[in-house]
Each structure stands twice: as C-alpha cells, then as structure tokens.
Design a protein around this nucleic acid. Sequence first.
DNA 1: CTGAAAGCGCTTACAG
DNA 2: CTGAAAGCGCTTACAG
Lengths: 339, 339
Amino acid sequence: MVKKVSLKDIAQRVGVSTALVSYVLSGNEEKGRVGKATAEKIRQAAEALNYQPNHIAKSLKTGKTNTIGLIVADISNPFFASIARGVEDEASRFGLTTIIGSSDESAEKLKKLVDVFVKRQVDGFIISPAEHSEETVSYILSLGIPICLIDRHFNSVKSSYVVTDNLESMRNAVTHLVQQGYKHIAYISYESNLRHMRDREAGFKEASREIKSEIFKIHYAKQHIELGDTIGEILAQDRVDAIVFATNTLSVAGLKYLRQHNVRIPKDMNVSCFDSSEVYDFFEHPITHVRQPIDQLAKASVNTVVELIKNPGQQVENRVLHSELVSGGQDADRAVPNR
Amino acid sequence: MVKKVSLKDIAQRVGVSTALVSYVLSGNEEKGRVGKATAEKIRQAAEALNYQPNHIAKSLKTGKTNTIGLIVADISNPFFASIARGVEDEASRFGLTTIIGSSDESAEKLKKLVDVFVKRQVDGFIISPAEHSEETVSYILSLGIPICLIDRHFNSVKSSYVVTDNLESMRNAVTHLVQQGYKHIAYISYESNLRHMRDREAGFKEASREIKSEIFKIHYAKQHIELGDTIGEILAQDRVDAIVFATNTLSVAGLKYLRQHNVRIPKDMNVSCFDSSEVYDFFEHPITHVRQPIDQLAKASVNTVVELIKNPGQQVENRVLHSELVSGGQDADRAVPNR
DNA sequence: CTGAAAGCGCTTACAG
DNA sequence: CTGAAAGCGCTTACAG
C-alpha cells in the first residue's frame, strides 16, 4: 500500500500551515488571500508528491459526499438501465458519483435502500418510487435531503419530479389507433395505483371514448400466468381488433405471446406499445409505440437534484416531458388514411 | 434538517465516555470488557435517541468505506445490467454498497473511473476491463486494493478473475453445428485482443477444423455499418450455411439483419449466438445460444472481492465457470441426428 | 471494568 | 498575507 500524502506533508515540505495548503488546493485562494509565490510553491509540492485529497475527511468536515443515490425498480430492466446510464453520465459532469439500488417494486425494500443511502449521507436522491412508498419519500423530504422523483410521482407528496406526460402519451397512441379505424381496443395494464399508471389509463379512456374498449389489469408478480390468460381470452372472444400495452415489460411479453400464437400484427390484431424495445425490429411491420425521452428524463432529474443541493431552500420543481409516438404499420385492408 | 445525534450525546446522557459507547455499539463489547448494566443503558440510550452512526467518520478512522466499485463497458447493455443487478444484490448481503461506472470499452475512460473510485476509497473493484487497460489493473493492484476482473481477464496481469470458459463455450456451440451437418461456418466477431474474444475464436477454430470456415472481424465502433456489409457479403457468396456470432450485441444485430432480409433461420441459414436475449423468442424456431451463468459470475466476483478485503495477503483466485448451450432448432432438411 | 486522549485528514473562522 | 487551533464523529491503544 502506497503511503498517502496529506495536506500536512505538503505543508511541512513548503514550510507553511495546512490552512494555506487547503485554501490553495481547494481553489479558495482568494478567500485565504494567499501570496502568489506561496500558492505556486504549494501547487508544485502537491504535484511533486502526487497529492490525492482525501474525500472522506473532506466529507466529514463539510457534510457533503458528492454522491447521489438512484433507486429504480430493477436495474436489469432495459428502461431503468438506460435511465441509470443517463443519470450516471450526467452526474459525473457535476463530479457526483452515483450509487444504485433496485427496489423490485417493493415499498419495504425501497425503504431499506433509502436507509442505507441516508446513512451513507448521499447528497441527493433520484427515485422511481414503488407503490405505497409515499411515506419514504416524505421521510427523505423531512430530513431535508434533496430528492427528485423520476418516471413516477405522488399527488400526496410535494416533491420535485421529472416525468413523461403519460396521459398525453397514451392518448396519442390510442387516438392513432382510433383514427386508423380500430373499433374495439383492449388495454392491458398492471394492477397499480401509481400515478403514471393511472395517467396512462386516463389517456386510454379519453381517446377510446367513441369506440368500444375493455380494460384488463394484471398483477405484477403474477404476470407470467395472467398475461397469457388475458390475451388468450381476448383472442378467443374475437371482438378486439387492437391491444394497447401499458408498459415496456407488458409490451414485450405481450408481443411474445402473440408471436407464439401466430397472431399477425397488424393483420390479425394491431397493437400499441409503451417504451422502446429491440424486439420491435423483429416484426415485419413496424410496431407502434410510445418513445419516452429517457435521456432527457435522466438529465433533468440530475439537474434538478443538483439545483436542490445548491439551493436547499429551493422551490419544488416539476418537469413533464413529452414523448414521441413512433408510428407503425397499419392493416392494409383498413383503408383509413393515417393522420 | 434533523439534528444528528452522535456518540458524544449518548455518552453524556448515560454518563460514560464515548469510548464505552463506541465499543458497545460497534459490537466490540468483549474487547472493551464493558459491564453488562452499562452496555444495556447505552443501548437503550442509542435507541431512545435514534442514533445513526456516521459512516463517514468511521471510514476516516478505519480506512474502510464498505463500498465496492463496479466498472463495466456499458450499464445499459442487458448483459452488464444483469451483472450489475447480481453484484448489487450480493454486495448488499455483505453490507457493501456498489457504485457503478461505464467505460464504453475505452481504456482512457476506465482509467478515469478508477481514479474517481480510488479517491472515493472503494474497498474493492469488480471490473470488466476494456482493451489495453492492463496498466490500470496493475495500478489498482499496486495500490493494494482488492480487485476481481469479471467476464474478461489479462494474461499479463496477475489479478483475481471470474470468467466463463469462453473457449469451451464456443467450442460446444460450434461442435453442435458441425454435428448437425453444417459444412461451411462463418464466425463474426469484433476486432479485439481481449482474452475472452481470443478464447472464443480459439474455440471456434478447434471445433470447425474438419469443415470449411471463415472468420470476419468488425470494429466495435463501426459495427452498424460493418456488420451489415459482412453479412451481406456472406449471403451473396451463398457458400456459408451457418453463422456464429461471438457476442450478444453481434447476435442481436445479426439476427435483426437476417430477419430484415427475410433469411429464414435455420432453413436458409442457421446461426449460433452468444448470451441470452429476449429477441430469440421472436423466432419461429429456437435460436441456439450460449447461456452464460451471469448470476454466478456476479456472485463469485463479489465473494472473491470480499475474501480479498478480509485477507489482504490473499492468493489470487481464479474461477472459470461453465456455460450452458441452449440448443435450438435445426434445418429439417438436414436429417443428421442431434447429439 | 472504565476514562482521557490522540488521531484519521480535512476546513474554516479567528487572530494577528 | 499567514498561522494556530478547533472540530467534524468516530476508533483504539493506553493507563488505570
């Protein structure tokens, strides 16, 4: 183990106090009103000794760790992996290191992660909250730790957040189907009270008002069974002409089911999906889907947290970003013009 | 901001020294030979005051941060996202927090991330190294910081590592094709000197000795153009009857190209892929592929690092795990029995 | 069984 | 322009 050089070593070498060294090396030369010649000598000594400041000591003194905690549902889910990448990149621009945790959509696990991160004294949180985790978010707020929710937020908790306009996104997606002439649309979502889920459902309802529609809800934990059953039922009834999937996991799993049962898209059944996925490229006709601005969500959340760290008394900041509807193919038999 | 309670607060309340409190609360009661009654009082006071130990102060004193740094090529790549999830879960079992960085396969970026993490005094590293980053790995070793490479390793640097047996994996995959009767196999890989890439190539060569074979190398950064060109050339020549993809990104991109050009698998062309992907489920016939033991890789790497942290003088530990060949369909016209 | 004290490596008023 | 000193919250020999 290489011996660490400290401020004291430099101070001794140059023959000044550690205070001076600290001022110079932390860029507060003006504040310490250090002499130019001295400052130069200090810098040279630091260079010569290959001085590496000790973050821990600094943190202990300043109370800042230059760390932010990111908590998502599951880092191995492509959507959150992309979010994580965006957060990591943006945070590093501010000299912030990101620590990551996966809640598996469990409020309890989320709370535990928050406890761990609070103990580690993260300077701020970016969280995609699980259902029923309002209390945990309030708790963070009560500690005065900056937090920005991402992807989802709560009505009852006044925290900063950055989300996609889920209602609008879903309304656009469904309107697109309606305008293509689809008459009976099924909506498949999770059993969830999370705001973003409710917004998507509201968007669906708004856009499907003039046609027939059915809504199906699946339990997150039991989706492997329930999704197949649900789609099977929809197909058996033979009334529905388009299915809307409310999330990326449902979209991919739903498409998989349809493909395995030789349902042709959009000929036998059209679909509209949420989020991007590489599986879409494996269909003959493009798959209509909502593309969320993942990178912007990530960057905006980091920026919000950075602002909150700088100005602790800051107003709550909310950003609602727009998504893009990537328009796919339509059933050629259905000669309704695309808008 | 809630006022933090410290050891001192508890000491005052109970009327003992902070030393006693520290011994009791850090579980070193025996060492401090603290009286039972006193210990109990201290614990109650800690409870009552909702004492949260300050990790930073502890770290400053002990030199341990209970943090490990994970560096992969790209956290948004599903393979590495899964690795990250596995590492995160296993690390948390040991009370370790994981900080993550993406190198984008750049030795320079990797070096920068290492510098940041070293400054943060991570207790250990888990790294999937980029090409030409031997020096950085040696540097970590020279600092005496525990490190375990994952997925890839270097011959020239004596560090612990956990990898899949890439040679064996690829040999099995290709042997499977040969045994099915394929006579002219193309191998598509990246231009790379990384050990795991060389091993896979060696496995391909071994297994394809008795048949015709061609090897194609693509530049990682230019894969979007070069992969299409390469496969296009292979198809135009019309000699090759099976393509082997050396990595997960190549597999997915390659399959995408084949699908878009209406090449039927395995009828027109069979393939063998590396790593799992959800896109495989979108083919009529199962796609043969090598399934790496991702979770075991992740867990083993954490365990190795934990061991190294505990016993700094530890021997280098290498683990080579076996993969599973998930056998896909074969061309029905080719009546060679499957082994 | 317990306390006083040094020290981890910084920062930052304060005094000169 | 510069130094001496306190202190962030712990841990840990050391002395009793």
